[in-house]
């Protein structure tokens, strides 16, 4: 569907509020002040997402959550492995680099990812009034292209538009990540309609 400037502004606001929630939750979890900013928001056809993420075989930590409710879809948060390593180190309060395939590191990443994804879902609900429930998270540390194609293609009819929110965390050095919401067919219209844009 075509997205108007007004709708994009509304989506950007959701991105800002979602980032705010995410920063608060992460500050609590990591016991230090974290700020988040949203440099960019896109609503693009899903085939273009791969051009936004850059090199398709760059390894990233990808957290994937299914969203249920009246405006169902799939939500994804991903960050470069360097950022994931910093988050895991901060979480365990260690200076040693942890192997991201280690079980402890993976469950930590799932937890952090879950918090971040839920923050954006919460913002979507807040603005639209439509209750949405995220599933338990699944994690893959692998090539970004490979993980995204699997998410796009796995079950269900997707809307051709993907909401894409670029996020930057400051407070721990060099953390960046991206949030994607892939609405199921009809969900985006419902969300925007409920927001009156």
């Amino acid at each position: 569907m075509e997205i108007t400037q007004l709708q994009l502004d509304a989506l950007r606001e959701i991105g800002n509020v979602g980032s705010g929630h995410a920063a608060t939750a992460l500050s609590t979890l990591l016991q230090r002040r974290i700020d988040m900013s949203v440099p960019e928001v896109w609503a693009v056809p899903f085939e273009q997402v791969t051009s936004i993420v850059g090199q398709l075989d760059t390894p990233q930590a990808v957290i994937y959550v299914k969203v249920e409710g009246e405006a169902s879809g799939k939500a994804v948060f991903f960050f470069p492995v360097e950022s994931a390593e910093i988050v895991v180190k901060a979480l365990f309060g260690t200076n040693e680099t942890m192997d991201l395939y280690n079980e402890m590191a993976q469950s930590a990443l799932k937890e952090v990812g879950n918090i971040l994804v839920s923050s954006f879902i919460m913002a979507l609900t807040q603005f639209s009034g439509i209750p949405l429930q995220p599933s338990v998270p699944a994690l893959a540390v692998d090539m970004i292209g490979a993980t995204l194609d699997a998410i796009f293609l796995e079950e269900g009819v997707l809307e051709d538009t993907v909401l894409f929110i670029d996020t930057q965390l400051t407070g721990i050095p060099k953390i960046e990540g991206q949030f994607i919401f892939l609405p199921d067919d009809g969900s985006l219209k419902k969300l925007l309609g409920a927001m009156g844009v």
Partner: peptide, 23 residues
């Protein structure tokens, strides 16, 4: 070769596709 794309080549050229998941 991009996603949902195809290309042909003649030797000695190589064909590359990056980040295959369920594709």
């Amino acid at each position: 070769v991009g996603m949902a794309d195809f290309k042909t080549a003649t030797a000695p050229d190589l064909l590359l596709t990056a980040g295959l998941g369920s594709c």
